[in-house]
């Protein structure tokens, strides 16, 4: 599913340098990425998603060589292939739960908001236990419920790859396990692959594999 080869990336001016000699993931694999803050874990997700482009090396994802695509093509790739789940959920407080879930369909032409999509959104929300809260404003939701909405939003377009950036970081311990479980279930039921950045070492055993960023060389160029 993911092939990374001799990747080198640096932010201009930031004095940050990331080098990944090689990294690969199989389809439907659930991989956790750990490592100290600033080690480049989020950068990795952005490179895989095609939000950032490497200076050198290759990023191969779901049969596409992301690193050589043009801007618009990378966007299309991201929409059709990738679902994002963020630490701060990044929900829009002016939209209700359903509108947040459908938001990707409203900002890109690549996704068509059909009746079928709405139905699917309903059942997915049901599956995630927020089926009765679709008309609520997001500020009325608990943290756990917010993350369920975010997961719903990420998975509704049926991505092959789900990128989770500290998805459980803002949750209390009881919720953490539960949300992760839900995330695993949903990813599994969508036959998708999961690459998750996390700090929560107690959750690591549940992943198929753990990649430690300390293994990569990171630091001043």
């Amino acid at each position: 599913m993911i092939e990374i080869d001799a990747l080198e990336f640096s932010y201009p001016d930031a004095g940050f340098h990331l080098r990944i000699p090689g990294f690969s993931m199989a389809a439907r694999e659930k991989v956790a990425v750990i490592g100290p803050s600033g080690s480049g874990k989020t950068t990795l997700l952005n490179l895989v998603a095609g939000i950032l482009v490497p200076r050198q090396g290759r990023v191969h994802c779901a049969g596409t060589e992301v690193s050589v695509l043009a801007d618009a093509a990378r966007r299309d790739f991201r929409i059709s292939t990738i679902g994002f789940v963020f630490q701060d959920f990044e929900l829009l407080d002016y939209l209700n739960v359903l509108d947040n879930i459908l938001h990707p369909y409203r900002i890109t032409r690549a996704l068509q908001l059909t009746a079928e999509v709405r139905d699917r959104a309903g059942s997915l929300a049901e599956q995630l236990g927020i089926g009765d809260k679709l008309k609520r404003g997001v500020e009325q939701l608990s943290q756990g419920e917010k993350q369920r909405v975010a997961i719903c939003r990420a998975l509704l377009p049926g991505p092959q790859l789900v990128l989770a950036d500290e998805a459980t970081g803002n949750l209390d311990p009881r919720n953490k396990g539960h949300i992760l479980e839900l995330l695993f279930e949903t990813v599994a039921s969508h036959e998708a692959t999961l690459l998750a950045v996390t700090h929560d070492h107690e959750l690591l055993p549940q992943f198929d594999r753990v990649v430690d960023f300390n293994d990569f060389r990171v630091g001043a160029a």
Partner: peptide, 20 residues
């Protein structure tokens, strides 16, 4: 800015923002 960032990451473009 954060909302715009999210839109970018979900797959929106500058044009999307401009349209909004």
């Amino acid at each position: 800015q954060r909302e715009i960032q999210t839109v970018f990451r979900i797959g929106g473009s500058r044009l999307t923002i401009a349209r909004l």
